[in-house]
Design a protein around this nucleic acid. Structure first.
Lengths: 140, 140
DNA sequence: GCTTGATCCTCTAGTGGCTAGAGCTTGTAG
DNA sequence: CTACAAGCTCTAGCCACTAGAGGATCAAGC
């Protein structure tokens, strides 16, 4: 019969059990039916919703954005410009993050490349951290 | 006379005042002297240490790593292999993060590129999130 | 001396997105 | 029938801060 336990739902959507309860608590997942002994019972709908959430989380969307995207997914007659805006804005944020990490990567790589593995007194890693002037980046 | 208030220290090291108190609380910054009226008084040493911390944080080192690096910086007669190891391991983590974000970026970019800006029913953004099978990545 | 406003103090609670654990009840397989 | 797996609730912890309440103190101008 239709009715999935929280454990099966977790496996079906590849999400951990406590995470599902957490999503319920913050209102991202609806409160499910319960058995007489108070255990949660879900339907297929819950699997779809949870998979959507998991995928969006893997893509780095935050909970607020996911709420908005779920709202749009529930109303197929709405224009999707908003979904595009959310995705585009997240894409921009990811681009920024990549750019920032790439800059960090360069500085870190310079640090370790110059490290003589000698005494700490001559250690480039420590030296660079101690004196921001040694950092060859223009600004941060 | 030598003696810097927490506000001046904050400006000198470009760190916010509550952050300094937080660092003191977790033992990353030493407990400073106090005036009669209980205000913190710092010396030049504190400026150097806090700058070191700030720079390391900007590079993404976590507090534990910074503690270790500060320990090494304080003992110039120690070999710096450990500092190099910390930096190298952090560099590896940053590389991983960049690779991961680059993969995400591609999927996000495919999503928005395919978005017709029509109705949500045809929205590629929502479609991709709903159905992991549409995601062209091999695994995640 | 007095007032004003900036700075200082401590303490608590909140952020995001879970994760871990205690201590209990219920379901299920052999 | 007996394990033990899985369910339940509730609280606390993670990281590195940040925000705010509520009060004391300092520095400068009049």
């Amino acid at each position: 019969m239709p009715g999935i336990s929280i454990g099966r739902l977790a496996k079906a959507a590849e999400v951990k059990v406590p995470t599902i309860r957490f999503y319920e608590q913050i209102g991202l997942m609806p409160t499910p039916e319960r058995t007489k002994s108070d255990q949660r019972v879900y339907g297929e709908e819950a699997v779809r919703r949870l998979r959507f959430i998991r995928h969006a989380r893997q893509l780095g969307f935050d909970i607020k954005d996911i709420e908005a995207l779920l709202g749009l997914a529930d109303r197929p007659d709405m224009p999707c410009a908003e979904a595009d805006r959310i995705a585009q804005s997240h894409l921009d944020a990811v681009d920024d993050k990549i750019a920032q990490l790439t800059r960090l990567r360069e500085e870190l790589s310079r640090m370790t490349a110059n490290c003589s593995l000698g005494l700490a007194a001559d250690c480039k890693v420590i030296e660079v951290l101690s004196d921001h002037g040694l950092c060859q980046e223009d600004r941060h």
